[in-house]
């Protein structure tokens, strides 16, 4: 009872799909629109190891899919499959695959690709997985669960919880209104305007650059890379901010600037230098350096910041908004 609709893009969906041929490459474009049946479309699940995936929210209630296949010649092109399955629970699943290869081996992967552009209802949750292409998710409110191996991930204007993982593909997040959890092994993470309640970003090797972060619970970790954070505490209204910022790198430098007037308790420790800009600090136990910043709010309503670099430097500053 799982699948009620099955279609192969540019196969059954379009009997005579438009094809173009340039020097040494055949390109085929297929389009399909999936309308909701009994239930609204709540989730879109995409698995494309053969190219890019771009998902964009829109105000309609249907899902429209554009697939663009590239191959060296027509025979190979026809062995690139895009399969669509819709579940009764309102989930649309989209999968790409290579032909079975029984006739003869496929060409080199460099000459083959399937790029998908998918427009989904804004409230739908997006789950997407790619291999080494680009994964972009934009303008959705239902959150996203994103996986990339060697591919890059880009998220723009998304609400709801976002989880992203890649091995050696960079990740970039711009304007995220939900909780964000990002993990990469060998890549750079860039975050800009993160407004969810919690932000957790972690890399093994690479850098984290986070700007305009307003989450209440921020945890950024790197083993072998620098972390730069530009955070805000409650928009600078002077009210209590009872959040926490934890930034830790084993071998990289840590640099944190907070736009705030509220009371902050900051602890920092580094194998190199610890610099607190604009406030007095004192040495604590175990080489921790402690300082208090700001004055607004009751003393019991401290925001907590902990910064650490085992072998690098730590710099902290407060910027009045």
């Amino acid at each position: 009872m799982m699948a009620i609709v099955f279609a192969t893009l540019a196969g059954s969906a379009a009997a005579d799909p438009p094809r173009g041929e340039t020097d040494g490459e055949v390109v085929e474009r297929g389009e399909l629109t999936v309308a909701p049946s009994r239930r609204p479309i709540r989730a879109v699940v995409v698995d494309n190891a053969l190219g890019d995936v771009r998902v964009e929210g829109h105000d309609g209630d249907n899902v429209s899919i554009v697939s663009v296949k590239h191959a060296p010649e027509v025979d190979t092109l026809e062995r690139l499959r895009v399969t669509l399955v819709t579940d009764p629970d309102g989930t649309v699943r989209l999968t790409t695959a290579l032909g079975d290869g029984r006739e003869r081996p496929l060409a080199a992967l460099a000459g083959l690709r399937i790029d998908l552009t998918i427009r989904v209802p804004r409230a739908a949750r997006v789950e997407a997985r790619i291999g080494s292409g680009r994964l972009e998710v934009k303008n959705v409110d239902g959150g996203a669960d994103l996986d990339a191996g060697a591919g890059s991930i880009q998220v723009v204007n998304v609400a709801g919880a976002v989880v992203a993982r890649s091995v050696d593909g960079d990740q970039r997040f711009t304007t995220v209104f939900g909780d964000l959890d990002a993990h990469a092994i060998d890549a750079d993470l860039a975050l800009d305007t993160i407004r969810g309640r919690s932000l957790s970003a972690q890399i093994h090797s690479g850098s984290i650059d986070a700007r305009r972060v307003a989450s209440r619970d921020v945890r950024l970790y790197a083993i072998d890379g620098d972390i730069h954070v530009d955070a805000e505490t409650g928009g600078g209204g002077g009210g209590p901010w009872r959040g926490a910022i934890v930034v830790s790198s084993l071998r990289g430098n840590v640099e944190v600037a907070v736009r705030s007037t509220v009371r902050l308790k900051v602890r920092a420790r580094a194998g190199g230098r610890v610099v607190f800009a604009g406030a007095a600090s004192r040495a604590g136990r175990d080489r921790w350096v402690e300082g208090q910043f700001g004055h607004a709010g009751r003393p019991s309503q401290l925001g907590t910041i902990r910064l650490e670099s085992r072998y690098g430097d730590v710099a902290f500053s407060v910027v009045n908004p």
Binding site: D217, Y221, I223, R242, G243, V246, S248, L250, Q301, R306
Partner: peptide, 16 residues
């Protein structure tokens, strides 16, 4: 990674 950074032993209390 978190364990290597000593995160389990030195968790910051979050005032929610």
């Amino acid at each position: 990674e978190r364990s290597a950074l000593g995160e389990a032993a030195a968790r910051v209390a979050v005032n929610r």
